[in-house]
Amino acid sequence: MSAATYKDLCIDAVDAPRLARFWAEVLHREVDRDDADLTRLTGPTERHTVWVNRVPEAVTVKQRVHLDVHAASVDDVLSAGAAPLDLETFRWKVLRDPEGGELCVFERDPVPDERLYEIGVDSADPERIATWWADVLGSTVAIDDADGSASVRVPGAPFESFVFSRVPEPKTVKNRIHWDVDTADVGLLVGDGARILREPDDDVSWTVLADPEGNEFCAFVEA
Score class of each variant (00 low, 15 high):
Ser2His: 14
Ala3Gly: 06
Ala3Cys: 11
Lys7Trp: 04
Ala13Glu: 00
Asp15Arg: 03
Asp15Met: 06
Pro17Lys: 01
Leu19Gln: 02
Arg21Gln: 03
Arg21His: 04
Phe22Gly: 04
Trp51Asn: 11
Trp51Arg: 14
Arg54Leu: 06
Pro56Thr: 10
Pro56Asn: 05
Ala58Asp: 13
Gln63Tyr: 07
Val65Met: 15
Val69Asp: 03
Ala71His: 05
Ala72Arg: 15
Ser73Asp: 13
Val74Ser: 09
Asp75Gly: 05
Val77Phe: 09
Gly81His: 01
Pro84Ser: 11
Thr89Tyr: 01
Thr89Ala: 02
Phe90Met: 06
Trp92Glu: 05
Lys93Glu: 06
Glu99Tyr: 03
Pro112Thr: 01
Glu114Ser: 13
Arg115Lys: 07
Asp122Thr: 00
Asp122Met: 09
Ala124Gln: 08
Pro126Asp: 01
Pro126Thr: 00
Glu127Leu: 12
Trp133Pro: 05
Asp135Trp: 01
Leu137Glu: 03
Ala142Gln: 15
Ile143Thr: 07
Ala146Phe: 08
Ser151Asp: 07
Phe159Trp: 02
Glu169Thr: 13
Val173Lys: 15
Lys174Ser: 13
Ile177Leu: 14
Asp182His: 15
Thr183Leu: 13
Ala184Asn: 12
Asp185Thr: 08
Val186Arg: 05
Gly193Thr: 10
Ala194Met: 07
Ala194His: 02
Arg195Gly: 11
Val204Ser: 04
Val204Ile: 15
Pro212His: 02
Gly214Asn: 04
Glu216Lys: 12
Phe217Leu: 12
Cys218Val: 10
Cys218Lys: 04
